[in-house]
Structures are given as C-alpha cells and as structure tokens.
Simulated assay, not measured.
Amino acid sequence: MFTGIIEELGTVTNLEPDGDNLHISIKSNITPELKIDQSISHNGVCLTVVAIDGHEYTVTAIRETLERSCLGKLKKGDAVNLERAMKLGDRLDGHIVQGHVDQTAVCTDIKNVNGSWLFTFTYDRSNNNITIEKGSITIDGTSLTVVDSGTDTFSVAIIPYTYEHTNFRNYKTGTEVNLEFDVVGKYVARLLELQK
C-alpha cells in the first residue's frame, strides 16, 4: 500500500529480458535502506526488490505488468518515480494507492498556468475506468486531484514542487504514463455494474 507521495527519482541502470519477464535495475539514494522482498512503487507499479548491489537494486516485472503498464518502454538512463510502502500508523498525505496499474494514458496537452502547470491526459474508456472532478488519480505513482473530467480525458494541476521532484518535468505531449484509478471509485463502479 502506498500514498502516492513520491520519495525520489531513481535512474534505470540496466534492463535484462528473461523470457516474458524484465529485470529492471535502478540506482537510488534510498537503496541502502532497502531489503530483499520489499515492495517499491516504480512509476506507480508495485514491484518486489529481488537483488541489491551497492546503490543499485533490481526488481522483476512479469508479462501481465508489462502489458498493463508502460514499464516495458523504459530505457537505460530514464528517471523513475519511487515510493516505498507506507508504514502503518503514518499520515496518509496522498490517497490510498495500491501500486496496481489499471491502464496507461497519453499526455495530450501541457499548459503553463502562471507558476503551475495543467496536464491533460487521454485514456481508453473501454476498460470502464472513470475519473470525477476533485477525485483522486495516480499518474506514474503520483497522487493527484482531478481538475477537469471527461469521458476519456482528464486534467491535473501540478505545483512547482511536484514538477521538480517527479517525472512530470520530463513529460511532453505524447508521453505515455501509468494510471491507477481511485480504489473506492472502482468498487462503487463494480457494485453498480453487478446491480444491472
């Protein structure tokens, strides 16, 4: 379980395909504090630490994860949003984030709004995922509030701190991102679907 508050940007140092799996090595300042079997959110995807070597650690993404997220498009040198699992009893500064990516979206517009940024994303509506204005959304592991919500599009406002300390500073029109929709909203949508 995560909060969507990014701790740090890690750097991809190695990508090693292994059958349908992908071993991803990351260099990070938090690596010395990690241990084998620990869960870490990588651009919103919960992955387990399988090896540690100095300031680098390795996680493995399986085929289902690679198909549902955009982790398979990572390249050496790419920055990755990182968050360790929350501790029971800590403040929940973002919202409840599971680290289970629902689907991807594409950045379709970026506007500089006098000191902040408005990012717009479009996603495939056929998966029945929805956003609501002022609801929560997780983009590449970052907990955000939806500003505008359409049937297959939404916008989020990004403050300078978030822009500087996450992957948002690297996004351009056409960038693909991982989405995790609000878990409470997903349960409500599923219950309504079952009542039909």
Rank of each mutant, 00 (worst) to 15 (best):
F2M: 02
G4F: 04
G4I: 10
I6V: 14
T11G: 00
D18Q: 11
I26D: 00
K27N: 05
S28D: 07
N29M: 10
I30L: 09
T31D: 02
T31Q: 08
P32A: 09
P32R: 08
L34S: 01
Q38L: 03
G44M: 01
G44N: 05
T48R: 08
V50F: 07
A51W: 09
G54L: 08
H55L: 12
T58G: 01
T60K: 15
A61K: 10
I62S: 15
I62A: 14
T65I: 12
R68P: 04
L71W: 06
K73A: 15
G77S: 09
L82M: 10
L82Y: 03
L92G: 08
D93C: 07
G94T: 14
G94Q: 05
H95P: 12
I96L: 14
Q98A: 09
H100D: 07
V101I: 15
D102Y: 07
Q103W: 06
A105Y: 05
N112C: 00
V113C: 04
V113K: 14
S116Y: 11
W117F: 14
L118S: 06
F119H: 15
Y123M: 02
D124R: 11
N127H: 13
N128G: 09
N128D: 13
N129A: 12
T131Q: 04
T131Y: 08
K134F: 00
G135V: 09
G135H: 05
I139G: 04
I139T: 13
D140T: 08
T142R: 00
S143V: 13
S143C: 09
L144A: 06
T145K: 07
V147R: 06
F154N: 02
V156E: 00
I159F: 05
Y163W: 15
R169H: 09
R169E: 09
N170R: 02
K172S: 06
L179K: 10
L179W: 10
D182Y: 00
V188I: 15
R190D: 12
E193G: 15
E193L: 10
E193H: 14
Q195G: 09
K196F: 11
